[in-house]
Computed example of a mutant assay.
Amino acid sequence: EKTLAVASSSSASLARKQEIEANQTSKVLETPRTKEACRRLGLFIEDLHFRSFESFHIPGDMKEKQQLRFDHYEKKRKENLAMVLAERAKVIAANARKGELPGIQSAQFLSMLESLFEKEAKRLETDLKSQLRQHNSLVKENEDQLRKEGVLQEKLIEREKRKMQAQRHAADHGAKVKEKCDAKLAASGLILAKQQEEYEKKQESYAREMLAEKERLERFQG
């Protein structure tokens, strides 16, 4: 209940403040100089009047959409109002050069213009801070992304290095195995050649013995 009471009091205070500002604006808007400024800019006085939040209510619609409509209108209204007030200042300056003296409404106008510029400066400061926070957030995200990419790149380089080392190790091992196999094959070849040579010698010796035996038999029979 206390929270509701505070919220209600805050809303009432805001509404009262907006009503006072709207009344001050209306006084300035109804002057000939303001109408002349609107005429020069092609704007209508009605577009510069403040509209309450409740005036944007549509039965059955969400509060969020009502707030969006109010914010959009208020932003456009303030932009147009700033242009009109600036143009009104030009009208006053032009009239002053012609010898006309500013009246009390001009003083109200200057006070209102000062208030408007002060609010605009605060809004710009708030927007700048918000943009700065967003920028810092983006910078941090980029730094984190770059750091992650750097870590990933280091891992890929390390993986490639290990892969190359494994390939070199496999190549060295394969070369050693091939060298051993070649040595064994060479040794086996020598053994086979020696065995073949001994076999051929035995064959020749056997053939000579058979020939000698044949000759002995022939001499014995003759």
Rank of each mutant, 00 (worst) to 15 (best):
residue 1 E to S: 14
residue 175 A to S: 07
residue 150 G to Q: 04
residue 18 Q to H: 09
residue 67 Q to H: 06
residue 142 N to I: 15
residue 122 K to N: 11
residue 158 E to Y: 03
residue 180 K to A: 09
residue 14 L to Y: 05
residue 139 V to S: 08
residue 43 L to T: 01
residue 94 A to P: 01
residue 206 Y to M: 13
residue 93 A to G: 07
residue 200 E to P: 06
residue 106 S to H: 11
residue 197 E to W: 15
residue 188 S to H: 06
residue 72 H to F: 15
residue 146 L to Y: 10
residue 13 S to Q: 04
residue 112 M to T: 02
residue 42 G to C: 03
residue 209 E to C: 13
residue 146 L to Q: 13
residue 210 M to T: 13
residue 16 R to D: 07
residue 138 L to R: 13
residue 102 P to A: 07
residue 112 M to W: 02
residue 93 A to Q: 12
residue 189 G to K: 03
residue 41 L to T: 03
residue 205 S to L: 12
residue 127 D to C: 08
residue 6 V to D: 11
residue 156 L to F: 01
residue 76 K to W: 10
residue 219 R to T: 09
residue 15 A to D: 12
residue 161 K to P: 00
residue 212 A to R: 13
residue 108 Q to I: 03
residue 16 R to Q: 10
residue 188 S to R: 05
residue 21 E to M: 12
residue 39 R to A: 07
residue 203 Q to K: 14
residue 97 R to H: 10
residue 108 Q to V: 01
residue 36 E to F: 07
residue 49 H to G: 01
residue 9 S to T: 10
residue 137 S to C: 07
residue 72 H to S: 15
residue 14 L to K: 08
residue 104 I to N: 12
residue 95 N to S: 15
residue 172 D to L: 15
residue 126 T to V: 08
residue 136 N to L: 14
residue 76 K to F: 09
residue 193 A to N: 13
residue 51 R to V: 03
residue 91 V to F: 02
residue 107 A to K: 13
residue 207 A to D: 14
residue 70 F to T: 04
residue 23 N to R: 15
residue 112 M to Y: 03
residue 141 E to Q: 14
residue 135 H to M: 09
residue 94 A to R: 06
residue 95 N to P: 06
residue 101 L to G: 06
residue 44 F to I: 06
residue 7 A to N: 14
residue 173 H to N: 04
residue 52 S to R: 12
residue 25 T to D: 02
residue 24 Q to F: 15
residue 91 V to K: 02
residue 25 T to L: 08
residue 169 H to G: 04
residue 161 K to E: 00
residue 60 G to L: 04
residue 120 E to G: 07
residue 202 K to S: 14
residue 11 S to P: 05
residue 24 Q to Y: 14
residue 52 S to I: 07
residue 89 A to T: 11
residue 60 G to S: 02
residue 112 M to C: 01
residue 128 L to R: 10
residue 203 Q to F: 13
residue 81 L to V: 00
residue 70 F to P: 00
residue 21 E to T: 05
residue 142 N to G: 10
residue 86 A to Q: 13
